[in-house]
Amino acid sequence: MSNPRTAWIVYIVLRLLFFAVPFAVLYAIGLTPWVAAVFAALIGVALSVIFLARSRSTASESIYEWRNRDRTADDIVEDEAVDAGASNGGASAADAPSPAPASRAESGATPAAEQRRNDS
């Protein structure tokens, strides 16, 4: 099953069957629908872990390839830098110190406007 599309179809159909068949059997023997659904879900998960490892692996590889299809070396370096900053508790741009206020001559502010700004 090297074709990712086939792996996806097989995986989805079998997962649905691994739930639907136990649900139908449990419901037919008289369990309430929600109890039958809970047990069918548990049975479906167990069966999919046991029997669908190969198609799940192929499907996850196709997700990985699709996710990384357009990544350049620059994108990878940027992602690593972001991850390193996040894991080191790095400061964000909001945490960076604000630049020093410009002088009145540089900002073109009048003395009254500067006073109002300083008062607030």
Results as ranks from 00 to 15, higher is better:
I63V: 15
M1G: 10
R56D: 04
V35D: 05
A24T: 13
E114A: 12
S55V: 12
V38L: 13
W34N: 08
A40W: 06
S48I: 01
A109C: 05
S48N: 05
G89Y: 06
A91D: 08
E78F: 11
T72I: 01
V82H: 13
I29R: 02
V35K: 04
A28F: 14
E61Q: 12
I9D: 01
S62P: 00
A112Q: 09
W34I: 07
L26F: 15
A91V: 12
W8R: 08
A109H: 07
A113V: 10
P99E: 15
A28C: 06
S107M: 07
G30P: 02
L26W: 03
G89F: 08
G89E: 11
A84Y: 03
V82M: 12
P33T: 04
T58E: 07
T58H: 07
S107A: 11
S2H: 10
S2Q: 10
A36S: 08
A102Q: 15
L16M: 12
E61M: 13
Y11M: 12
D75H: 14
V25T: 09
L52T: 02
D79R: 13
T32W: 05
F18V: 03
G85V: 01
Q115L: 11
F51Y: 11
E80A: 14
D70C: 07
A24C: 11
P22Q: 07
Y11P: 00
V10F: 01
Q115A: 10
M1T: 07
Y11T: 05
P4H: 02
I9Y: 03
D119C: 00
A28I: 09
N88M: 09
A41R: 01
R69Q: 15
T6P: 01
S107F: 08
R69W: 12
R69P: 02
A96F: 09
V38K: 01
D70V: 13
L17H: 04
S2W: 05
A112R: 11
S92N: 06
V82Q: 10
E114D: 11
T110N: 02
V21H: 03
L14M: 13
A93E: 14
R117G: 01
G89N: 08
G89M: 07
A46L: 09
A96Y: 09
V49W: 03
L17N: 05
T72E: 02
R5M: 07
T6V: 13
T58L: 12
R5F: 10
A53T: 06
W66H: 13
P4N: 02
F19A: 00
A40N: 03
D74N: 13
S120E: 03
F19G: 00
N88R: 11
R56S: 10
L17I: 12
I43M: 03
